[in-house]
Design a protein around this nucleic acid. Structure first.
Lengths: 236, 236
DNA sequence: ACAAAAGTGTTCGCTTTACACCCATGT
DNA sequence: ACATGGGTGTAAAGCGAACACTTTTGT
């Protein structure tokens, strides 16, 4: 069975979110044609390793990151030349992390793994720009029909965080009252007794996402679904 | 670069539709552990071949079929043992054909490629049952937000065909008037001057899907979206 | 004449949208 | 006191759901 000479790799695009900014985790290449350019974390799959494990291993090894949510995104193998060294097919995964992970990374002085604001990514090696493009589309789409936004927030968060997250990622302004009403109507959040105030302004009550309740409702045929008419386009 | 010993294959799950029945294309295995059992068409990717080309080639070689619609479904590579012979990762594709293809195949006396009604599939080799499962979910989901049903019908079709197609694939009864109203409101069908009657009953006007118009509308932000409350579950 | 499928409008209720003022805190 | 963000209700419009009879053909 030596008729085939194709290598299989996994790449991960991991999103983080903090203070109304969406971030992407990138790695600086150390060797090869693309030395010193940035790319998504990833690498070759081992013979006895499942794809999911491979991605998680690479994320740990290259960036010390473990994700809060992970799903397969797409397999890139139509461009035979996407890796100049050899024929490499890449199974891309899509991950989300809590803000804690973001801060941890910022503290490290490891220069070869870094969070970049989504709106100012450097030029990426290989076809990784295409992966990023596909990932942001998926993320935007999923926000509408899966309670995935919570995976980018701390376990307890003020409602406005969720609202800003949607606005940032979708690039739209939303009606605060309607958004809140809609999310609360799903009955998948529980309010805590805690409040938090950031600088000035009235302190905000903290909420917690209840995944158990969500799964239960899901089984009864409940659908998480948000349609959001944009008020106006956002600036940046 | 001989550190990796994983093979990469493509598999295709192709759906056909005719007379209120959904079909899946299967191939009878000729050799190996799974000799004489049925599985999805597919095979190993060649070194210089894109994934899409590989699927289309396999479909042509193994079943003489060319598809009307093709998209990547999912990459199966978490079960390291999914192929008992070696580590094989499979990129599964999802295809749709016109009824013409279905009839052509039925005429052939080639016994190793056959259309099976979706509701009475034989036991499948490898993990192909999982692929089928994922594919039907995708097909059902897509019917709601992409004008994909037309790819399973002849270019000109009576409205009732579309209606039955939705009912068959979703396994629900629909309200004829509401369904028709909704589809027509999209303004992506053009009516022809032809009529067709099948046996008794009033002849039906034939319609034609206009992909150009659809693409144009899409660019203007139009969304194909159908919500369909089921009237009752269907029998089979 | 009857059976079979095609074709067609209107009403009701719910969901989505639009919209503006008061509240609690920090400075 | 003022600036900043948090919190809340209501009315109008639009969309989805329910529902039954007439038309045209084959037998």
């Amino acid at each position: 069975m030596d008729f085939q000479n194709i290598k299989i790799a996994v790449d991960a695009i991991v999103f983080g979110y903090e203070k109304s900014e969406l971030y992407v985790l990138l790695i600086k290449q150390k060797y090869g044609v693309f030395k010193d350019s940035w790319c998504l974390p990833g690498g070759f799959v081992k013979d006895e390793e499942s794809l999911t494990i491979a991605v998680q291993r690479e994320l740990r090894e290259e960036a010390g990151v473990s994700v809060n949510y992970l799903e397969q995104l797409y397999t890139f193998g139509d461009d035979v030349q996407r890796d100049p060294r050899a024929r490499v097919i890449s199974v891309a995964y899509f991950g989300l992390v809590n803000p804690e992970t973001l801060s941890l990374q910022a503290d490290t002085d490891a220069q070869d793994a870094q969070w970049f604001p989504f709106h100012s990514l450097p030029v990426l090696a290989y076809d990784h720009a295409a992966i990023v493009q596909k990932a942001i589309e998926r993320l935007q789409a999923k926000l509408h029909y899966q309670p995935i936004g919570f995976d980018l927030l701390k376990p307890e968060f003020p409602f406005s965080d969720l609202e800003h997250l949607y606005q940032t990622i979708l690039g739209k302004k939303l009606d605060r009252r309607n958004f809140r009403k809609k999310i609360l109507s799903f009955d998948i959040l529980e309010e805590t007794d805690e409040f938090r105030s950031i600088g000035s302004g009235r302190p905000a009550r903290l909420y917690r996402f209840n995944p158990t309740k969500y799964k239960a409702l899901q089984k009864e045929g409940f659908l998480f679904e948000i349609k959001l008419k944009e008020k106006e386009k956002m600036d940046k």
